[in-house]
Nucleic acid binder design. Structure first.
Length: 921
RNA sequence: GGGCGAAUAGCUCAGCUGGUUCAGAGCGCCUGCCUUACACGCAGGAAGUCGGGGGUUCGAAUCCCUCUUCGCCCACCA
């Protein structure tokens, strides 16, 4: 009954609702799919967050997008499997625990490998589930029964299997070369892990003494003077005429005076610097190439920690290269020392500012040191080729498509992958060496004895694998590979991968390669690359900048749905999302307000509906009013559009489409229009025709109450379904309260509305639009003449044509109510003093305003309107009289313009007539 | 040094295949309203030469060129 007091509070409180509903979803196993489910699968594997991570808003965006897709497909009847998990994140996690250990006054070296790793495990066991719990708070519908950690025993076996297979295929090899070394993390890094940052460094011009050359000195330019100690040659371009006389002579390193040859090599760019290049093969990748070509010695002059010193272990140095006073100095301190000494000795020609890109460790941001060492590499070219083809033949698509070009470029220029990390936390490299015969092999199980000579003195490679070497197996290893599990058969390959473009190469490209290599098929069909969350200055949100937003704060203050709404509505396809960390209210209130709007529509609807509402198809179509049929048409159009948007990953568009339907169409118009019918108890008998009596709709509409209830219930139910993927909590909460709900029914598992094209009626929408225009016209007049809302107006409509008249009469109650009219008449209104509005179809509305206006005022208003119309008409007429337009534009465009012209002329003529009849000049 | 993206209302952004969704939304602003679902709301407004310039076209916010300003990615110039 409409008079029943509302038993729901007028403001929605998400805190009371969200965790309760999440528990209910879990209890119903709503997010789990059995491998033998008959439903066609839809699979997303989560980009596993670092096991030490706590949720930030970047995760929030990534995971909410996935959740919307998964919930959408689940409602569409797919067996939606969203596999969650965490990544052991070798360097990052080891760093975190090393800091903890340091706080306890000890180091990992004090503890030793075994105890340190156990310490990390303890930490992970204690805190590793935090981020997954946080995902629940924001509503993520992951299948928690299949949660995977990349160091789980089964997963570790998969990593080992992958390694051994690649070993057996001879794709893994020992490389002796210059790699990126992090002196802080004390490990090598892949090319991708050593990130460029633009900096203004200095270019030092240093003089080297030359024996028997054309000049007594030559000058080299370097940004890293400290590497000078490791120089083993000076190189010039073979065709550089300036320096030809130097080739074959001997130069001397300043300070140490060590003699080095001057050689010719094409790698030297004669146009850069002085044309002389110092060659430090052990500390520069290019120099290493030169050194190899010329068989130069390759002494290391830095320790792994980045301090000056001999490191006989791996280099091929002859020793005695680092003078005693410099030994043990940090590389940057040594640089200053050396520069000062050079200056003192007059060997520093000049120092120039020099902008260049310096590589930093992606985990600790330390400047990376190029360093000669032995590492395990994977040969990538053969793996990349089919992965590139998978993109080119369309088996893998990128959204937005432009990322495909980036992917292509990287794949075509792929380099071998350094997978060794000098860490303790991770998958130990399963390579063994026999102490007796020296045999080296990779093994799936830890061997007891050498397979060659049977000796039992074996050593395992001390290093662990790059974390990404386990991540690239995620889409199949997480489902049990290499075992042929039912899960693997069912859920591989998956469908959509959602991630940020930053890890396109780290992870996405490698997953495609691994998927094709180990599983014969790409792991997913579509890669959706979303944007980055930034602040209003377009800076990436980060802990160090202090510009982050804690998603859990947002949940606390505004609710999870509000967080989700802002993230989804704010991110158009592939574009960055800008949020203001200093103004959470502006950023998140719209989402909260929308949830509250839904809540209140729900309060109203629920108060109007009886315990049983007949399904729409049992309602006699003849009892449906224009407004009923209009809202149903709008709903179906929304279903069609929102479905299409979601299918194309245009989540913001789909979300906003539903928002508009709910707020603009359903709440602002339909609910308001339908109130009188809901309030009028039904009498027996069928309604008679609408045309006729002035208050036809009010009186004869009475029997349509049940139709109104059915339509209202149907539309609201559908709206909740449409919005559920984006705002799952509020929609589930309200849906539970709708009439006829069985106790175990969940919106989360309910069906997505199917599109019913029969209910879409463009003509009908136009008709209702005329009603809306009349209402808005009257409201405008009221505002313009400052008529207080309480003073009830009398208005009269003169419809142009019988069809329009029928429409206006049928919806006269709607018009009367929404325009706050005391009385609405049709035609024949006395031409008293009042205001007029004239519509595109030539229909006219008159609002009686004795005392409120004078004729002069109304004349001014109407002639302003006519001037505006005249100008528009003039432009349109010019367009239509342009022969080129008429001849070349498509016929339907021309026809539409003609129709527009016709309408405007009606309107203009009607205005003219009105001005004349009022006696305006 | 290459490649990509962005510039639209005061702010944050939509605008996809050129033309009745073409100049939009949310927030903010102005004017009225506590109209019995909602003031986290309702109604009515103001506000932009779509970064500059050129071109293609009957027609350009939309396509092309160019310039400016900001991002991002890739690259061994010491």
């Amino acid at each position: 009954m409409s008079s029943t007091p509302f038993d729901l509070p007028p403001q929605y409180d998400p805190r009371e609702v969200e965790s309760r509903l999440y528990q209910r979803w879990l209890a119903a196993d709503a997010f789990t799919v059995r491998a033998d489910s008959p439903k066609p699968p839809y699979v997303i594997v989560i980009p596993p967050p670092n096991v030490t991570a706590i949720l930030h808003v970047g995760h929030g965006l990534n995971d909410v997008i996935q959740d919307v897709l998964v919930r959408f497909e689940r409602m569409r009847g797919r067996g939606a499997e969203w596999l969650p998990g965490t990544d052991h994140a070798g360097i990052a996690t080891q760093n975190v625990v090393e800091k903890l250990v340091a706080a306890e006054g000890t180091t990992r070296f004090d503890l030793g490998r075994e105890r340190f790793v156990e310490r990390v495990w303890a930490f992970v066991r204690e805190t590793g589930g935090v981020i997954l719990e946080q995902l629940k708070i924001i509503g993520c519908s992951c299948d928690w029964s299949r949660t995977v950690f990349t160091l789980d025993p089964a997963y570790s076996q998969a990593v080992r299997e992958a390694f051994v297979r690649l070993w057996e295929e001879k794709r893994i090899y020992r490389g002796h070369r210059v790699i990126h070394w992090c002196p802080h993390c004390l490990t090598s890094l892949s090319d991708e892990e050593a990130e460029f940052a633009d900096e203004t460094g200095k270019l030092y011009h240093i003089r080297y003494r030359v024996d028997g050359g054309p000049q007594p000195f030559l000058t080299v330019a370097t940004t890293r003077p400290e590497t000078m100690l490791g120089d083993t040659a000076i190189a010039v371009h073979p065709d550089d005429p300036r320096h030809a006389g130097f080739i074959g002579k001997t130069a001397h390193i300043p300070i140490t005076d060590i003699a080095i040859p001057i050689i010719a090599d094409e790698a030297v760019d004669p146009k850069f610097g002085t044309g002389f290049v110092k060659v430090t093969p052990a500390h520069d990748a290019n120099d290493f190439e030169i050194g190899t070509r010329h068989k130069l010695p390759m002494p290391l002059v830095m320790t792994p920690e980045g301090r000056m010193g001999e490191d006989g272990g791996r280099g091929t140095g002859e020793g005695g290269r680092v003078p005693a006073p410099l030994q043990g100095l940090d590389r940057f301190e040594a640089r200053d020392r050396i520069v000062k000494q050079l200056k003192d000795e007059g060997l520093l020609d000049k120092v120039e500012p020099h902008p260049h890109a310096v590589r930093h460790c992606y985990r600790c941001d330390t400047v990376v040191e190029p360093r000669l060492s032995d590492q395990w590499f994977v040969a990538m070219k053969d793996l990349a080729r089919p992965a590139l083809a998978a993109y080119q033949d369309g088996r893998v698509k990128f959204v937005p498509d432009r990322w495909g070009a980036t992917y292509e470029h990287w794949m075509e220029n792929i380099r071998d992958w350094n997978i060794s990390r000098q860490l303790w936390w991770g998958h130990r490299i399963p390579v063994f060496t026999c102490g007796k015969c020296g045999h080296v092999w990779a093994a799936r199980q830890d061997p007891a004895a050498c397979p060659k000579c049977g000796d039992r003195k074996l050593t395992q490679d001390p290093d662990v694998l790059d974390t990404w070497f386990s991540s690239w197996l995620w889409p199949f290893a997480a489902f049990g590979w290499p075992e042929r599990t039912p899960d693997l058969a069912r859920f591989y390959p998956g469908h959509t991968l959602v991630t940020a473009p930053e890890i396109l190469f780290f992870w996405v490209a490698r997953m495609i390669m691994a998927g094709i290599h180990f599983m014969e098929r790409p792991p997913f069909a579509t890669v959706y690359l979303h944007g980055t969350v930034r602040d209003t200055q377009h800076r990436k949100m980060s802990k160090s900048l202090g510009n982050g937003i804690d998603p859990l704060d947002v949940v606390r203050l505004y609710g999870a749905d509000a967080l989700r709404w802002t993230l989804i509505a704010g991110s158009s396809l592939g574009a960055d999302v800008v949020l203001d960390p200093n103004d959470l209210e502006t950023t998140f209130a719209p989402g909260r307000n929308f949830a509250n709007k839904l809540w209140n529509i729900g309060r109203f609807v629920l108060a109007q509906l009886p315990g049983e509402v007949p399904p729409l198809e049992r309602i006699d179509r003849h009892t449906l009013t224009l407004a009923d049929r209009w809202i149903l048409s709008r709903l179906e159009a929304t279903v069609r559009d929102a479905t299409g948007s979601f299918e194309q990953f245009r989540l913001d568009e789909g979300a906003k489409r539903c928002f508009d339907f709910v707020w603009k169409d359903l709440a602002d118009w339909y609910v308001e229009a339908v109130k009188p019918r809901l309030a009028t108890p039904e009498r027996g008998g069928a309604p008679s025709g609408a045309a006729g009596a002035r208050w036809a709709a009010a009186e004869e509409g009475a029997p349509t109450r049940s139709a109104a209830q059915a339509v209202l219930c149907y539309c609201f139910d559908a709206a909740l379904r449409l919005l559920h993927p984006v705002v799952p909590f509020i929609t589930e909460e309200l849906w539970q309260k709708l009439p006829g709900r069985k106790p175990d029914e969940l919106l989360t598992l309910a069906a997505w509305p199917s599109f019913n094209p029969d209910l879409v009626d463009a003509e009908l929408e136009m008709q209702f639009q005329r009603v809306q225009q009349v209402v808005e016209g009257i409201r405008s007049i009221r505002a313009e003449y400052r008529i207080p809302p309480k003073s009830r107006l009398r208005a009269s409509i003169t419809a142009r044509g019988r069809d329009n008249r029928v429409i206006f009469e049928a919806e006269s109650e709607t018009i009367r109510r929404l325009a706050q009219l005391e009385e609405l008449a049709f035609d024949g209104a006395a031409k008293r003093v009042g205001a007029h509005a004239i519509f595109g179809d030539g229909s006219e509305v008159f609002v009686a305003l004795e005392g409120a206006i004078d004729v002069q005022q109304e004349c001014t208003r109407l002639s302003t309107e006519r001037t505006r119309l005249d100008q528009q008409l003039e432009r349109l007429t010019a367009k239509l009289s342009n022969e080129n337009f008429v001849a070349r534009a498509p016929a339907d465009v021309v026809a539409r313009e003609r129709e527009k012209e016709r309408e405007w002329r009606f309107q203009r003529d009607a205005l003219d007539g009105k001005l004349k009849s009022l006696g305006c000049s």
